[in-house]
C-alpha cells in the first residue's frame, strides 16, 4: 500500500468520481466541487503564464506595439462588468466572431469540401468505388432540406441514412475498446499504485 499522501488523495478522488456510477452522493459531490474549483484556477494561472505573459507582454516588450490592440480588446471584454459601458464589449466579441467565421469558412471549405470531393472522385472500376460514389450521393440527398423526401428523392435519402447508421455503428464499435482501456488505466492506478496489490 502506498505511503505517499498524494497517492491517497488521488485514490480518494478517483473513488469519489467512480461512486457516481452507483448514484449521486456526497463523496462524488465533494470530488466534483474540488475539480470545478481547482480546474478553474488552473486555467486562469495557465493563461497568465502561457498566453498573457508571452503573447501579450512578451510581444509588447519586443516593440510589437500592435499587440496593444489585443490588450485593448481584452480589456473591452471586461467592460461588461460596468453596466454603463458594457456595450463596448460587443466590439471585442464582434472581432472574435468575425475573424472566427472567416477562418472557419476557409478551413471547412478546404477540409470538408475540397478534400472530401477529391477523395470521392474515383474511377468506376470496382464495387468499392461505385459504392463510395452511390453512398456519398445518397448521403448528400438525405441532407436536402428544400424538397420533400418523397418518391425517388425519398428512396435515395433512405439509402443515405442507412449508410450513415452503419457508419455510426462502425465508429461506435471502433471506440469501445479504447474506452475500456481508459478504465483499465484507472483500475491499475487503484490496485497497483495505491493498494500495491498488482505489480
Amino acid at each position: 500500500m502506498s505511503t505517499d499522501i498524494g497517492v491517497w488523495i488521488a485514490a480518494f478522488l478517483t473513488l469519489g468520481i467512480l461512486s457516481f456510477l452507483y448514484k449521486d452522493n456526497p463523496f462524488y459531490k465533494v470530488s466534483e466541487s474540488i475539480f470545478i474549483g481547482v480546474s478553474a484556477a488552473y486555467w486562469f494561472v495557465y493563461m497568465i503564464y502561457n498566453v498573457i505573459e508571452p503573447n501579450l507582454l512578451g510581444n509588447l516588450q519586443k516593440g510589437e506595439w500592435w499587440y496593444a490592440v489585443a490588450g485593448i480588446l481584452g480589456v473591452m471584454m471586461l467592460f461588461r462588468l460596468i453596466p454603463k459601458i458594457g456595450w463596448l464589449s460587443r466590439w471585442a466579441v464582434a472581432f472574435m466572431i468575425g475573424t472566427g467565421a472567416g477562418l472557419n469558412f476557409i478551413v471547412y471549405l478546404q477540409s470538408n469540401v475540397m478534400k472530401q470531393i477529391r477523395g470521392t472522385l474515383a474511377p468506376l472500376n470496382s464495387i468499392g468505388n461505385i459504392m463510395m460514389i452511390v453512398g456519398v450521393i445518397t448521403g448528400l440527398i438525405y441532407f436536402f432540406f428544400s424538397a420533400e423526401h418523397k418518391g425517388l428523392l425519398g428512396g435515395a435519402a433512405k439509402v443515405g441514412i442507412w449508410f450513415i447508421m452503419v457508419s455510426f455503428g462502425a465508429s461506435f464499435g471502433y471506440t469501445v475498446m479504447a474506452r475500456i482501456s481508459l478504465l483499465i488505466g484507472r483500475m491499475h492506478f487503484l490496485f497497483s499504485d495505491w493498494l500495491g496489490l498488482l505489480h
Binding site: 467565421a101 471547412y108 469540401v113 472530401q116 470531393i117 463510395m132 445518397t138 448521403g139 448528400l140 457508419s167
Partner: peptide
C-alpha cells in the same frame, strides 16, 4: 467503405452548412 462514405457525406453537408452560416454571420 460504408463508414468512410457516410463520413464524407456528413462532412460535405457540414461543410456547406458551416459555409453558409459563416457567410450569414459575416
Amino acid at each position: 467503405y460504408p463508414n468512410m462514405v457516410a463520413k464524407r457525406a456528413i462532412g460535405l453537408g457540414v461543410g456547406l452548412g458551416m459555409l453558409s452560416t459563416a457567410l450569414k454571420i459575416i
